[in-house]
Design a protein around this nucleic acid. Structure first.
Lengths: 250, 250
DNA sequence: TTTGATTGAATTACTATTCAGTCATGCGCG
DNA sequence: CGCGCATGACTGAATAGTAATTCAATCAAA
């Protein structure tokens, strides 16, 4: 946990974002914080493997090494605990995404990184994301929910990337950023799910990811798979005419 | 329910796919079937509005107009009932998708229809789809699950469309169909969710859908988002030529 | 009359949550 | 310096509420 390669994509556990992480400190405060971390880590694991409904407070307590009741001094209830887990997840996801993007130069490598980073994280902790609908349903004013804000902050990394890419001329077109966002994250989320279902071997999954990311990035950077030059499109049209004419011959 | 416009996109309720629907028949068999339909309809409504966890068997029974215990003569348990609802949903979704595609000529209009059809259905009955993760988690061999098969049959409509489009030269490139599928359905699912959260007005949501679908179809067909270009006009001409040729064939 | 569907009150299971009691820490005071 | 108390953390058995599920009794069609 101490010497983390700065460039890695995965979201190692534990939220040591704040405080100077004095590993030796043993004050009351620090122990409380450690415990909170342990509970969140346990929650992440249990929720990820069992899903919100099947996960029980008892499981989480046991895994965190505390009594059932202790959970309630840290989180008001199961719902709040799950939200805590998600908040921690988003915090790490956003931080590593930002960092990775800042470390690259070109729009293409940045986009490529962000795509891989997202789909990889999703695949590793799919269960976390799947709790979102359960927690937010029956919430008419979702825009006031903290989770909405966390997600917004996260996707802002993408939005900024697109705007910068446009400003520098790397990304053609002027489609609504929201549309590109839907396509980008939607494809990655769906791709993560289907790859996990389809391929059991890790190597196969990696290939799935590469294929999808390459195509997706190409579509966004290239303004469409076949850049849509007039000549290209005319050629496609000519092909169709020829095929149609063939029918006439028969 | 009797005189349904053939061209509509929405998935009217009730699964009258099979049997000649003798509205007057009053045999034991027919009443049993009617009751099953009522239960599925009630389940669909309750699950959609409350989500799997908050929906109770009592609610569904009340809404279906039967006693709690009756549900168990039709479905083994809550899980099976939810699966029944999903199966019915997929059956209708697939049927209307196929029908709509078959009713159009060009690859572009077919793809456009399929995209709108999908996102519209999702937006209307989002809760149904969100039950999937809950029901399938803890299922290591998902590929053996019936729901997997239903989904596969549904997306096959897209796969066929892409292959046909390629054969006729409408769709350039030779990227893995699975990749296009991830992008297509992923973007639509994600777009449905974010539009529902973002826009409360129905008109705004409609605009969201149009923007996303146009862009997405453009990306796959390769035409880009631009409209009214020379190429578009040529394509329109070709459509007319093809239709004219059909008439010649007859 | 038989047979299968239907009923809904009773049962069962499960778990989130509470709380009275225990414990440990760190601080103030002798 | 060391002692004991006040404070807050921690414990886990008991509670409480919720629904899923069962089943003996009833009903209605064939």
């Amino acid at each position: 946990m101490a010497s983390e390669p700065a460039e890695t994509t995965n979201l190692a556990a534990g939220s040591d974002a704040l405080l100077p992480s004095t590993a030796t400190s043993n004050t009351r405060q620090s122990r409380v914080r450690k415990r909170e971390d342990a509970i969140i880590a346990a929650g992440r694991h249990v929720f990820t493997t069992h899903g919100y409904a099947r996960a029980t407070m008892a499981m989480i307590a046991r895994e965190a090494g505390v009594a059932d009741g202790t959970l309630y001094t840290y989180f008001e209830n199961k719902d709040a605990l799950a939200r805590g887990v998600i908040a921690d997840y988003y915090a790490r996801l956003t931080a590593t995404a930002k960092q990775g993007v800042d470390n690259r130069r070109t729009t293409r490598t940045r986009l490529d990184f962000l795509a891989r980073h997202h789909i990889t994280s999703i695949m590793e902790e799919r269960g976390i994301i799947e709790m979102l609908p359960v927690l937010t349903s029956s919430l008419s004013d979702f825009s006031e929910d903290e989770l909405y804000g966390l997600n917004k902050t996260y996707v802002a990394v993408f939005d900024t990337l697109i705007r910068d890419g446009r400003a520098s001329g790397d990304i053609p077109g002027d489609a609504d950023v929201a549309v590109l966002r839907d396509i980008f994250f939607g494809a990655l989320d769906y791709g993560a799910r289907s790859s996990l279902l389809r391929s059991s071997r890790k190597g196969a999954r990696k290939a799935d990811v590469t294929r999808l990311v390459d195509r997706l990035v190409g579509m966004i950077i290239g303004g469409g798979a076949s850049t849509g030059s007039l000549a290209d499109r005319l050629e496609a049209v000519i092909d169709r005419v020829e095929i149609a004419l063939k029918k006439v011959d028969n």
